[in-house]
Amino acid sequence: MKPMTEAHLAILRRHMVEVIALQADLMSEEIGKDILGERVLEPMRRVRRHLFVPPELAAMAYHDTPLPIGFDKTVSQPFICALMADLLDPQPHEAVLEVGTGLGYQAAVLAELARQVGIGKCGPLTSA
């Protein structure tokens, strides 16, 4: 089989957003809304999730599932990324601190929505 092109991946990205919209509709009672805002869905169509996973998983990057990214970490499920961004509702003039949702994908989506995104590291909790 020949390798996927950026055009193929763009089609899968659009399909991923359609699946996210379907899940939002199906889970409307649980999440308290019927749809996720277009302002969030549009960046989900643009941000190339396959760049945030190991190359051998690029073909699976647009499945609505968390994926391992090494370092005992995963990139979050796209529906969860979209839901978190929608509930946060960052505005273009705001700064956002993203901590512990993976190695960059959520921050990249938030960067499309807010003026600035800071990235923090979530480490083990220690007592004083």
Rank of each mutant, 00 (worst) to 15 (best):
K33Q: 14
C81Y: 01
V40N: 12
A59N: 14
G100I: 01
D34H: 09
L9H: 08
E112Q: 15
S76V: 10
A7P: 05
C122H: 11
A85P: 06
L67F: 14
F79C: 02
V47M: 09
P90F: 03
H93N: 10
L113T: 05
Y105L: 00
G123A: 15
A128R: 09
M16G: 01
P54R: 14
L83M: 11
V75A: 09
Q77F: 05
T101A: 04
V109E: 01
L125G: 02
L125H: 03
A107V: 01
L57K: 15
F79R: 02
V17T: 12
M60T: 07
L51E: 14
K2Y: 15
A128M: 08
H50N: 13
K33S: 13
L113M: 12
P78M: 06
H50T: 02
M84W: 04
L51K: 13
E56W: 12
A82T: 09
V117K: 00
P124F: 11
A108E: 12
A111T: 13
R46Q: 13
P90A: 02
K121A: 10
P55N: 11
T5H: 08
G123D: 10
L26P: 02
R14C: 08
L83T: 07
G123W: 04
A10H: 06
L67R: 13
Q23W: 07
S28F: 09
R48I: 06
F79L: 04
Q91R: 11
L97G: 00
P90Y: 03
M84K: 08
E29H: 14
G118Q: 05
H63P: 01
I80E: 03
L9W: 05
E18M: 06
I80D: 03
T126A: 13
Q106T: 13
L125A: 11
D89H: 12
Y105E: 00
Y62Q: 01
L110R: 01
V75S: 15
F71M: 12
V109Y: 02
H50R: 05
M44C: 09
Q91N: 04
M84F: 06
E38F: 08
L12D: 09
P124Y: 10
R13S: 07
H15G: 03
G70E: 02
A85W: 03
M44D: 08
P43E: 04
L113I: 03
P92N: 06
L12W: 08
D25K: 07
G32E: 03
M16T: 03
P43H: 11
T65H: 11
F71W: 11
D25W: 13
V75C: 13
L83S: 06
I11V: 13
P55W: 09
E42M: 12
V96S: 00
P78F: 05
G70A: 04
A7M: 09
Y62W: 02
L87S: 08
V47Q: 08
A61H: 03
V53I: 04
V75N: 07
Y105P: 01
V109C: 06
E94A: 03
P55R: 10
P90V: 03
E6S: 10
A114P: 08
T101R: 01
P124T: 10
M44N: 09
A111Q: 10
E56N: 12
